[in-house]
Structures are given as C-alpha cells and as structure tokens.
Nucleic acid binder design. Sequence first.
DNA 1: GACTATACGGAGCGCTGTTCCGTTTGGCAA
DNA 2: TTGCCAAACGGAACAGCGCTCCGTATAGTC
Lengths: 195, 195
Amino acid sequence: MDTSEKQPVRAKRADARRNEKTLLDAAAATFVASGVDAPVREIAAKAGVGMGTIYRHFPTRADIIVAVYRHQVDACADAGPALLADSTSPHTALARWLDMFVDFLVTKHGLAAALRNDQTGFETLHAYFVERLVPVCAELLDAAIAAGEIRADIGAYELMRGIGNLCIFADQDPHYDARRLTGLLVTGLLLARTA
Amino acid sequence: MDTSEKQPVRAKRADARRNEKTLLDAAAATFVASGVDAPVREIAAKAGVGMGTIYRHFPTRADIIVAVYRHQVDACADAGPALLADSTSPHTALARWLDMFVDFLVTKHGLAAALRNDQTGFETLHAYFVERLVPVCAELLDAAIAAGEIRADIGAYELMRGIGNLCIFADQDPHYDARRLTGLLVTGLLLARTA
DNA sequence: GACTATACGGAGCGCTGTTCCGTTTGGCAA
DNA sequence: TTGCCAAACGGAACAGCGCTCCGTATAGTC
C-alpha cells in the first residue's frame, strides 16, 4: 500500500478546495429549499459555478448527496451501540434507533425516494447507506434475537429497506405518519405480547 | 341529472373508438415490457399513433394507467367483502386482502412509485385508488377492531399508504420481499399474541 | 359529392442530466 | 519576477423526457 491518502504528486489547488466547500454548502441549502431532487443547475447556480465544475467534483448526483449527509449517516451509525447499552432491552434499542433513522430520512425531502431509485445511478448512495447502517441494524437485531424478544426470520437489510420505503414521500402527506407505521412494523417483530 | 352517459350530441367517431382500444392495448403491453414509467412516446409508437392522439384520449399519464388497471382495481375492491365472509377471522381476511393488494402492486413494475408521485400530476391516479380501495380496507379494519383483534389507532388510508410504500421498487431487488414486510406490519396490528 | 365537426400527426417548447472543450488560473521553477 | 503548464473552470451543446399546438385528413351527414 502506498501510504494513506493525499499527496500522490501534487496537492489539490486552492480554488478547487474552495469550490468544493462552496458546492457542499450550496447543495445543502438547495436540498433544504427544494428537496434532494433539486436540479443540478440550481445547485451550480446557487454556488456560482459552472456545470463542469460541479460534475468534476461530484461525478454523480449521489456523490453530492453522500457528501452532504455523510456525517449525519455516521452519527446515526454511531448511535446504535450507544442505544444498545442504554436501553432496557435490545428491542427497545432497535425501536429507538429505527426512529432516529426515520427522522433522518423524513426530514430530508425526497432522500428516501432517491435512495431507492437505483436505476439512475444512485447505486453509490445506496451502497454507502447500506454499508454504513446495515451492520449497525444487524447488531441490534441479533441482540434482540439472542434475547429471545423477536422472531429470527428477517434480515437487517430487508428491514431497513422496508423502513426506508415507509419514509418515501412521507413529508408530502399530512395524513401519513411514517413513525407510526414503522412502530407497527417493529411491533410485528415481537414474538409475543400481553397487552 | 341529464340521463346516464353518452349521446350528448353525436357519438364518438369510429376511428376514435378504434384508436382508444389500440392505445389501451399498446399501453398495457408497454407497461409489462418497460414498466409503468415507460415514455409516452413509446406507447404512441407501439400503437402507431401520434403524440397528439394519445394526449387527446388520455390527457395525463395517470389516465392511461387508471384505464389499463381499472378492472383489476375493481376486482381487488370486490374481493374485500368476499374474504370477510369466507375467512375465519376479520384479521385473517384483512391479511389476505392486503396480500392481494401487494401482489397487484408488485407485479406492475413501478406502479407503486407512480402512485406516490403526486407532484407530477398523478393525483388522479392516487384519487381513483384511494376512492376505490380505502373504503374496502376500512370495512375490513373496522370488522377486526369490532372483533377486538387489533388496535384501533390506525386509519385505513394510512395503512394502505404504508403498504403501498412497502411495494415501491419491490420488483427490482431480489433481497427484498414486500409480502414479508407487509406481513410484519399486519402482525403489528394485533393486540396480543401467544406464540 | 360537398361540407364540417372531429380526430389525427408530429414538429416544437421547456425542462431535465450529462458531456465536451476552449479558456482561465494557481503554483512552481528559473 | 516572470513564464509555463497541469489543473480547474464555465457554459454551450446534446440527448431524452412530458406536453402543447396547429395544419392536415377524414368520418359522418345532408
């Protein structure tokens, strides 16, 4: 392996670094204002750069989105083990963690839909979310199974995929509450209940 | 009310009626081949008509879809009361009926996503499905509540919307089974269980 | 056969994402 | 300081989409 990261031959130019930062800020602002589906031109315009620039820094839409939300995804991933330690039962921890996940998805207009839209080059985005969050979910799930609380016939990926789906367009319909549906799903995992 | 339906002044022209039929067949075939998202041009081409024709018969994409699937939706709606009569319990009937609904959505590539895509003029489609199916779901739900089988804090609309969401992109991912997730959700409705 | 409401075809508009290439500029070496 | 060139930039241009508009063709009637 040739060392860690940078300095292959020369460092990134100062204006490039500046533009990358500008673009990230503009993208974040645009996502809040117009949703994750916002036209690339809109982000470029807000950042005051050309189309070429945005595509050089982020070859695909998914790269922008991943970059914008990366630390939030990481925070969500980190919260898993913490919840497991703090909660009264693994199933409670799982439920709480999934609530966090739902909050994250729902507050980003259209993120859930974009995540699912694999066909148009969102594999990268999908891959990052899966890679980062599925192991955490699996840990919580396994703990709950080991504790004899829930059934063992569902995988972490499938569960997260389902919950992700429940969040699609959740922000566009006042008569729909993704958290309630998620709660139902998580309750359905339980092996037995007495009330 | 001025009578029932047709004959306002003159009947539809023969070629128009012929084209409508041709278009419906072409649309159905195209949906199977390329999914519900298929370009309008593709349907027009397959039917051998111009863009103008297709838009005159079906002012919006949703109208084509509704027309193509109308009788299937109706069949699904009709199945509700029948299941209620035949099943051992209202909850079982509900579960079975929702399975039918899931099968219907999953086999039509992209239908579920289109249904949710309210922003681009799919309100009509959404409205037709809601108007036709929600009352049926409500009937099943109420029966199960009356029987003391399930919790009473969820509406038919929200439940169907959730299940519809679970079906989005279900056909594109071999590791995902919309039926299993739906089952979990329906199980979560139960008030108590003993195994 | 003539006339007209009805229906048709497809060019064209506006909006996407993405590419391509001529132009500008940061950073280093002389 | 100056000169150089790889790196970075900007935006015109292309392709594909939904949808509209209007000149043309024709079914049905008199």
